[in-house]
Design a binder for these strands. Sequence first.
RNA 1: GCUCCGAUGGUGUAGUCCGGCCAAGCAUACCGGCCUUUCAAGCCGGCGACCCGGGUCCAAAUCCCGGUCGGAGCACCA
Length: 490
Amino acid sequence: MDQIKTIIQDHYPEFIVKEKRIQEHRLPDLENVHGKVVMRMAPSPSGPLHIGHSRMAILNDEYVKRYGGSLILRIEDTNPENIDPIAYDQIPKDLEWLDVNFDKIVIQSDRFDLYYAEARKLLKEEHAYICTCEQSDFKAKLLKSIACPHRNTNANENLELFDKILSGKFKKGEAVLVIKTDLNHPNPAIRDWIAFRIVQTSHPRVGKDFVFYPTMNFSVAVDDHLLGLTHVIRGKDHLNNTYRQLYIFNYNSWKIPEYYHYGLVKFPGFVLKTSIIKKGIKSGIYSGWDDIKLATIMTFKKRGFKPETFRRYWIESGMREIDSEFSIEIFNSMNKNIADYETPRLFFVPNPLKLHLSNMEEITTRIPNHPSNKSLGVREYTIPQNSDVYVPSFDWKTVGESSIVRLKDLCNVKKESENAVYVGNDPIKNAKILQWSPEDGVPFEVLKPDGTRDRGIMEPHGKAFLGFCQLERYGYVNVVSPGIAYFTHS
RNA sequence: GCUCCGAUGGUGUAGUCCGGCCAAGCAUACCGGCCUUUCAAGCCGGCGACCCGGGUCCAAAUCCCGGUCGGAGCACCA
């Protein structure tokens, strides 16, 4: 075979036609789609959304856009101890910025009545029981597949206890509502699980109106049914939760949605835990939720990233149950690719060195704001005789004495120590090219994700510029206020 | 300890369900070259992967078994 190949290659290369297979990255179709789909995003309001949340938001949004139907934003605020009220307003804003269109917002703390009704039903049918065991005893018994004494309490007694709990006769830790599953289930994570617990902390929305709070597994199961979800997409960390929630569905003979569990993503180097961020904001390590060192949606927005980048990235990552690492390298590259053509250029001179331009007459130059996108226009400077310019000191140092470099879109100069001697206007092939600023450039600062900042001079036309731009030979930044920019990527 | 999930180049992935069109595609990174008044973008070329061991089969990245490695869950968090 190899010989035949060699002969063909040597004598008849024209027969080797290797057709390129072009494959687009497309999310797989969902199973069991009959008409429109109903899907949901269910963040907990512990803070604004971060890069990790954007995956579930975009995957859900993509499918709703593909099949038609509705996307529900469900705020899961059933743990008052882990709520930051800012989230109620900020999460919808974050989603809107990501271009994720939800049809309605459901807030779980509005729905206690529904959860209580379902709880009563399950107690009545003896699919659930009130347990007043010591927490550690209950847990130990479960691990050994032993029933706790309350598991056989009859329905009426349980219902009475339930009302007592609701009226506040029990304190935190004294009683829980447990869903019966299978004590002999091989997976200890699936055995009888807690559906309600007593919480006496005040809730930002409902205050102290309720003391018996559903756990996530209970409220999720009830709401997924009541809201008519057809497909559920969420992280693999919820796999066991799905198995638990299925018991509620089966006790009620509810129609079961199609579940998908995508793999876990590691975000090396990013701080995503809201508890740590909140602590950092309090102590001053972070300036706020949009601190440049963070990976919140607010921060990415402030750094000038495009929403489309998130979409492209997560679509390419797909929906498989494979664990992966977020690649900032690829993410940045996608953003550059999406943004570059529309992005104007400016000259920023970091660590500026003032040079005297000698031997030069007045020059007027028109500098394109983009090398190929002519619609972005030009900017014009007149550099008078005997003036100074700023160039990056780092670059100037690397230039050999008497070498000729080009000040981009201006002229060529010969290095004579700290003097730049004018030697002509026409571009020279293969010359080192530097960005520069006239002497009336303005102070400018770039904040970088590692917490450091670069200081320098911005060319005068950049003085009033706000928004996303490329600082030539430096990198892309988002100018957030006059003289201050957030670094995007190089 | 118990249960579940996964494993494709440096990185992110496609393909795996339903074995053959995979001599494994795309992107990114890296290396060359072209173009260029940015070290950006663009164009051309190159490098580089099916975790290991068995089995089934004419044929295995794909199916089966065993191992290894990684991850998650076993909360009165979500």
